[in-house]
């Protein structure tokens, strides 16, 4: 297992390079006027040329990439073209926020979804099941921005229990995490339900009953542990998605995370940021998948690594 993990980690290095090259080349394919990026729309032709030189865009793409990589290895990812902030600093400022928001959302989602899915499965075709799955259906179909604004309206504007936007305290985290978490709650609850139903059909459950175990123990120890294994593999996908894909939630709640940073930077063609954030996200997704695989193997000893 350790060897497997090390091998996968070693593979991350070339993968990170490939991601960074793809991003680098893609960013340079987009039509863009660097002069305008740096100077705004009223830059003169000579200022535009100066800006091109300053950004190194007068060089060939391989040369530009090499330059980028060498400075990157010295810990310098360049500066944001738009705000002038160092990219490393921006990443340092947004990554913890994204992890906090994404982590809370996912934790919330899994903590709610798994019991919900189990209860729905155990009480299959009852009102409880229909209620839970109706909730899940709503969770999947409600658009993020709509839910976000609704929650803000109810809990921030009308009830004034929670702040509408911003970050800094635990109270700030609640609404965005719930908004972001809901669709994951829905997906995971449905997945858990079908997984539990499948496990319940398996022979060993009858054995457990024949042994005279309590129903609670059978469901919450044996069935649950078996049922969450496929759910874990979903987690790998979700970790990647929740960090990079929180753009809408970050925008609604003015949450200073990586998603909004990335999208705004793509729109503004702020490529030092796009380059760094996309590469980082790529690596994060790979790491998340590795983590999911390791968890998967730890939960199910039949998986050989």
């Amino acid at each position: 297992m350790l060897r497997y993990v090390l091998r996968r980690l070693a593979l991350l290095v070339p993968m990170a390079f490939i991601i960074s090259i793809v991003v680098f080349v893609a960013m340079r394919m987009i039509p863009v006027d660097p002069g305008e990026l740096v100077l705004g729309p009223w830059a003169t032709a000579e200022q535009r040329e100066l800006a091109r030189q300053k950004l190194g865009l007068d060089q060939s793409i391989p040369v530009q990439y090499l330059r980028y990589v060498t400075t990157a290895f010295q810990g310098d990812l360049g500066r944001s073209i738009k705000s002038g902030k160092e990219v490393t600093e921006l990443i340092r400022a947004t990554v913890p926020n994204s992890l906090m928001l994404g982590g809370t959302a996912l934790a919330l989602a899994y903590l709610i979804a798994i019991p919900l899915g189990v209860v729905a499965a155990v009480r299959q075709n009852t009102l409880v099941d229909q209620g839970a799955m109706g909730f899940a259906l709503i969770g999947i179909s409600i658009p993020n921005f709509w839910l976000g604004l609704l929650l803000v309206l109810v809990f921030a504007v009308n009830l004034r229990w929670l702040p509408a936007t911003g970050s800094g305290t635990a109270a700030h985290l609640i609404l965005p995490a719930v908004t972001l978490g809901l669709q994951y709650t829905a997906i995971v609850a449905r997945m858990t339900r079908s997984s539990v139903l499948e496990v319940l059909r398996q022979d060993f459950v009858r054995t457990l009953h024949a042994k005279g175990l309590r129903r609670g123990r059978i469901i919450y120890m044996h069935v649950l542990k078996n049922a969450v294994i496929p759910v874990i593999s979903l987690l790998g996908l979700h970790i990647g998605g929740v960090v990079g894909g929180a753009v809408i939630v970050e925008t609604i709640f003015a949450w200073p995370g990586m998603g909004a940073l990335l999208v705004n930077s793509i729109i503004a063609r702020d490529y030092p940021i796009v380059q760094a954030v996309l590469t980082l996200l790529g690596v994060a997704v790979l790491l998340a998948n590795l983590l999911a695989d390791v968890l998967y193997a730890a939960a199910d000893r039949r998986i050989k690594m």
Binding site: A156, V157, T165, G166
Partner: peptide, 18 residues
């Protein structure tokens, strides 16, 4: 100063007292 890309969130922010 805080930036709100979305008009609706910006409006909600002042209505919520943020």
């Amino acid at each position: 100063y805080r930036h709100f890309a979305d008009d609706a969130s910006r409006t909600a922010a002042i209505e919520a007292g943020d």
